[in-house]
Structures are given as structure tokens and as C-alpha cells.
């Protein structure tokens, strides 16, 4: 297993290189550039700007020096959009935000989704099943760009319970302010505050939760129908034990396949959530930089997403082998 992991990590490097080359070609081929906009500055000014960022070099030179800087200095270059920040700065600011609300979303989605799916499967065609199905389809029919404004209308404007947006340092802060809700001082220093986290987590996790519940339900039904579970039941083992000891593990296999990319999607954030709650997360940076052709930030975030995708898919494969020891790679 260790040699498998080592091999996969080694392959990650050329995979990322191909990703970089591909993305570079796509970016340069797409119309529009990072500078100018509605009123393009005089040619001399534009030339100055391009010289500053090395955009006057041939594409192949730009790509080569980019790769060199990334590999040898872990330097993703300066952001075109934010003159006083490098891409490393942008990611260092935005990624912790999405990582925080994304990880919580993943947790909520998995816990609620799996429970709902298992409950629906073992009580197939009862009211519990119908309720679970109703909830999950309802959740999917409510895209997050509809749900986010509804949440703000309800919890901020209507009830006044939660802030309608912002991040303000996020989950872990130095100390609670007097009026803060859902803020808990840690006796050993620092404080934990949930008020800015809740709405983004609900908005992001709901549809993932629904998908996980649906996959779990279907896969659980299949496993419950399989011979070895029928045998176990026939032996008179208690239901609870059959479910948790024997059925759940194999039933989770497709859920884990789904979770690999889904978790990457969650922790790298969603532009809808970032925009709706103005969290300053990386999802928004990615889309904005793509629209404004901030090549450096696009590349930085693409590499981040690529690395995480490779990592999580490796994790998925390791989990497979743990669930089903017969699997050999």
C-alpha cells in the first residue's frame, strides 16, 4: 500500500505539469486580456504594463519561467488584479475561508446525508423513506443561488439571528465582542464564533447532502438485498448489528467515489456562496480572475484544485482498499 501511495504521489507531478500546460494554452487562446477593459489605455501604457508582468514574452517563455518559479521557489507570481498582493497572498487569504466553511459543509453533508440515506433504505417505502426522498429532491430543486438569498431574507432580515454576510476573521478569532451571538470564549485563549459560518454552510452543503443521501439510499438497498446480508439476517443477527457491522461499509463505497471530487468542490468553495455571503473566499477569486483574465490567479487556483483533486482521489483509492481488502491496484 505504501509503495502504491508513493507511486501515485510521484505521478502527481507530471499530471500537474500537463494540467499547467493545458490551462496555459486555454488561457492564452481565449479572447481578451488582463489589462485594458472598456477603455483600453494608450498603446505605450499597455506596453509598459505588459512588460511589467512579462506578458510581452513569447508564450512558451512565459510558461517555462512560470513553471520554473513554481517548482523551484513555490512562487505563483504577482496577481494582476491586486498590485500589492502575490497569488500566494490571495490564496493564503481566500483558501482558509473556503476550507473552513467547505470542511464544515462536507461534515454536515456526509453526516446528514448518510443518516438520511440509511434510514430511507432500511425503511423503504414507508413514510420515513418518502420524507427522506421529499427532503432530498426539494433540496436539489432549490439551487444555491435561490437558497442563499432566501436564507438571508429569513435569518437576517426576518429573524435577525445571523449576519447576512461577511467573514470577519471566520471561525477562530481572538475574543468575542459583547454583542456577538454564537461566540464562545475559550478559557485557554481565543474564541470560536459560528455566526458567520452557519448560512454559508447551509447553502453549500444542502445539495451535496441530497446527493449523498440518494446515493447512500440506493447503494444500501442493493447491499441489503445481497446474499451475504440475507444470510446474516437469516441467521437472526440483530438488525442494528447487520447494518452497522456488515452493510454500511460496502454500501459507502459509491458514496466515497462521489465524495472525492465533491469534497474538493466544497473546500475550494462556491462562487455562489462567496458572492451571496461576501465571504472573500477562493471560489469568488477564481471566477472573478477568470472573467478579468488575471492569468496568475487563475493558474494558482487551478493548480490548487488540481493538487487537491489528485490528493482526494488518492485518498478515495486508499479507502477503497480499506473497505474491500480484495481490491488490488
Amino acid at each position: 500500500m505504501y509503495s502504491f501511495i508513493a507511486k501515485r504521489l510521484a505521478i502527481a507531478v507530471p499530471t500537474l505539469l500537463i494540467l499547467i500546460i493545458f490551462s496555459f494554452i486555454l488561457m492564452f487562446a481565449a479572447p481578451g486580456g488582463p489589462f485594458g477593459g472598456e477603455r483600453p489605455p494608450p498603446a505605450a501604457v499597455l506596453a509598459n504594463i505588459e512588460a511589467r508582468y512579462g506578458l510581452d514574452q513569447p508564450y512558451i517563455v512565459q510558461m517555462f519561467s512560470y513553471v520554473k518559479n513554481v517548482v523551484f521557489h513555490f512562487d505563483f507570481g504577482p496577481s494582476f488584479q491586486y498590485r500589492d498582493r502575490t497569488v500566494n497572498d490571495v490564496i493564503a487569504q481566500g483558501f482558509p475561508v473556503t476550507l473552513t466553511y467547505g470542511a464544515w459543509s462536507a461534515l454536515v453533508a456526509v453526516v446528514v446525508g448518510v443518516s438520511l440515506g440509511v434510514a430511507a433504505a432500511i425503511r423503504q417505502n414507508t413514510w420515513l423513506d418518502y420524507l427522506a426522498v421529499g427532503i432530498t429532491i426539494g433540496a436539489q430543486a432549490l439551487p444555491n443561488f435561490v437558497m442563499a438569498p432566501m436564507l438571508v431574507l429569513l435569518f437576517t432580515l426576518g429573524l435577525g439571528w445571523l449576519p447576512g454576510g461577511g467573514w470577519s476573521g471566520g471561525l477562530l478569532i481572538d475574543a468575542c465582542d459583547a454583542g456577538d451571538r454564537l461566540c464562545f470564549n475559550n478559557p485557554f485563549g481565543g474564541a470560536v464564533r459560528f455566526d458567520y459560518l452557519i448560512l454559508p454552510v447551509i447553502a453549500l452543503s444542502t445539495s451535496y447532502m441530497a446527493s449523498i443521501a440518494r446515493i447512500t439510499r440506493s447503494s444500501m438497498l442493493e447491499v441489503m438485498n445481497s446474499n451475504f446480508i440475507r444470510t446474516a439476517m437469516a441467521k437472526g443477527l440483530p438488525m442494528r448489528r447487520v447494518i452497522f457491522r456488515h452493510a454500511l461499509k460496502p454500501a459507502l463505497l459509491p458514496v466515497i467515489s462521489y465524495l472525492g471530487p465533491a469534497v474538493v468542490g466544497m473546500i475550494t468553495g462556491s462562487v455562489v456562496v462567496d458572492v451571496a455571503f461576501s465571504t472573500g473566499g477562493i471560489g469568488q477569486f477564481f471566477v472573478n480572475s477568470a472573467f478579468s483574465r488575471d492569468y496568475a490567479v487563475i493558474m494558482g487556483i487551478t493548480i490548487l484544485v488540481g493538487a487537491l483533486t489528485i490528493l482526494f482521489n488518492l485518498l478515495v483509492d486508499v479507502l477503497y482498499a480499506w473497505i474491500d481488502p480484495k481490491i488490488r491496484y
Partner: peptide
């Protein structure tokens, strides 16, 4: 790995 790459490229472009 091809799937990994396709999942990560900026699809917008």
C-alpha cells in the same frame, strides 16, 4: 489521471 486533469482545468475557457 486524465479525468483528474479534466476535472481541474478552468472549464470556462
Amino acid at each position: 489521471r486524465i479525468v483528474d486533469i479534466l476535472m481541474s482545468i478552468p472549464f470556462m475557457f
